[in-house]
Computed example of a mutant assay.
Amino acid sequence: MESVSSVRRNPGRAKRGGVSLRWRLAVAFRVLAAAVGGYLVAALFSVCLAQWLPFTRAESVVLAMTVSFLAWLLVALWCFACRSVVLAWFGVLLPAGVFASLYGIGRWLS
């Protein structure tokens, strides 16, 4: 005979796999934030860094593009280390806004 706990199911759980839709969507949005947001931050970081480095243009671009992979890695780690998806997106969009502003200031000053 089945016990009462095995008959009752958690209403938040899916029927197959035992994982809720809410959890799956949270993971999907974290992957999206890590991939798309990481690319956004890495691209803005490399453009901003290449603009502000005191080397020749070619050296600045190569160094900035190389270092941008580190920025992408940090964004991806941040997205999966946060407690909520909203905080993950906030941690992606805030540096993107800062790097876009720094790039705009650099273009305005030159």
Rank of each mutant, 00 (worst) to 15 (best):
V19Y: 05
F45E: 14
R9T: 12
G12Q: 10
T56M: 03
R13C: 04
R13I: 03
V19G: 07
V7M: 15
S101W: 11
L109W: 08
L44E: 04
W52R: 15
F29M: 02
V47Y: 05
S5P: 00
L74S: 14
L109S: 10
Q51W: 09
L53R: 09
L44I: 04
G37I: 09
R30L: 12
F55W: 15
R57K: 10
A14W: 03
L74N: 05
S101D: 09
V7P: 06
E2T: 14
L102S: 05
F80V: 10
C79N: 07
L73T: 03
V31W: 09
Y103T: 14
G97D: 01
V27S: 04
P11G: 06
L70M: 11
R30D: 12
F80M: 06
G12K: 12
A33C: 14
A64I: 05
L73M: 01
V41T: 06
L63Y: 12
A88T: 00
R22K: 11
R8V: 13
R8L: 15
R57L: 14
R22Y: 14
G106Y: 06
R16N: 14
L102G: 09
A71N: 03
V67W: 06
L74T: 14
P11K: 01
L70F: 07
A96N: 11
V19S: 04
V75M: 13
V36N: 00
V31T: 09
R9C: 10
F29L: 05
A50S: 12
W108M: 10
A43S: 11
G97Q: 05
A76F: 01
A100S: 14
G17A: 02
V92M: 03
W78N: 04
L53T: 11
V31L: 02
A43T: 09
W89V: 01
P54T: 05
A96I: 08
G91I: 06
F69R: 07
A28H: 08
S110W: 12
S46C: 08
V61E: 03
L77T: 09
V41A: 05
S46T: 08
Y39H: 13
G18S: 07
F29S: 03
A71K: 00
C48S: 08
R22A: 15
A43E: 12
A58Y: 04
G97P: 03
A43F: 09
P95T: 08
L25A: 07
F29C: 02
Q51A: 08
A100V: 03
W89P: 00
A100I: 02
S110T: 11
L25P: 02
V62D: 05
V61W: 01
A64M: 05
V98W: 04
G37R: 10
S101H: 06
A28T: 13
V27H: 00
A88M: 02
G97Y: 02
V92L: 03
F45T: 09
V67N: 01
S3I: 10
A50H: 03
T66H: 08
R24Q: 13
A42C: 04
F55P: 08
V86P: 02
V19L: 11
L87F: 05
R30I: 06
V47W: 07
S3V: 09
V4Q: 12
A96P: 04
L21N: 00
G37Q: 04
Y103F: 07
Q51D: 15
Y103C: 06
F45G: 15
S5E: 13
R24F: 05
C82A: 11
R16D: 14
P54E: 06
R16H: 11
V85S: 00
L70K: 06
Y39C: 07
A42Q: 03
S20N: 04
V98P: 01
L32D: 07
